[in-house]
Amino acid sequence: MSADNEIIFQKKIDSGLKIEPKDWMPDKYRKHLIRQISQHAHSEIIGMQPEGNWITRAPSLRAKMVLIAKVQDEAGHGLYLYSATETLGITRNELIEQLQSGKAKYSSIFNYPTLTWADIGAIGWLVDGAAIVNQQSLRGTSFGPYSRAMVRICKEESFHQRQGYEIMSKMSNGTPEQHEMAQDALNRWWWPSLMMFGPHDADSSHTSNAMKWKIKRETNDDLRQLFIDRTVKQADLIGLEIPDPDLKWNPETKHYDFGKIDWEEFWEVVNGNGFCNKERINNHISSHEEGQWVREAALAYAEKTQNGVENE
């Protein structure tokens, strides 16, 4: 029976149909999705912190409003993605617990600190830029709720990327100090952004099933290359230099060749030894704990009013 189900399931996927929450799916497919979508949701949520770090110091009313709106969008993305994960039979509370205990991961990029205002530009331009490449590809993912969430999220992310690029452009063309901040931010965020696509295909443990099930549509290396090709031109346009001496156009492949990524640093940060790993999780835990009495009160009140006790 299970073998039949599996054949039908794979046929659906091969013919480009979406898998919906009530459809039969292999346990490993379900687990893979829970891991991937929740990791994506957690990244949106933890990603609010490095940017939130600059909300109160944003240098103009407009910059402030745009940044608040962006961080708010991220909370919204986190919400849809938690909801998409919940359709797979896990609760938001369980997901939050996995995040706080370290069982679930989030994108390692958010363990780097935002030191200057230019970092807010760099996050929008590079981090959201890399995320878009990944998410555009995921619009075609085989699980319906995830695919639909991606369609919606992509629209907002492209606005985020423009916002980041605008900050970088203004700073690069501003005073010498501003230009220096912009270049410094690019220097610090470039390599971690490339790491966002994950290990090289040859070293990625999750790629093969994910491709067969069409959860992933393109490989880590292909997506990384697409991002680099796009971004190099954008850097040129605003007078910033990509911090990679090996970066050069290859007329044969029609892509940019680039230098070696420091995977040791990547794994260090993934394994908890980045600049802000502990702080990000501790902040999440403390806000969550601080909110406990509020959630309890809301629940207690809802129970009272549902029972009609409020009119006693």
Partner: peptide, 9 residues
């Protein structure tokens, strides 16, 4: 910013 008692808030 990100310090509310739950995401909706």
């Amino acid at each position: 910013a990100y310090k509310g008692p739950f995401l909706e808030e």
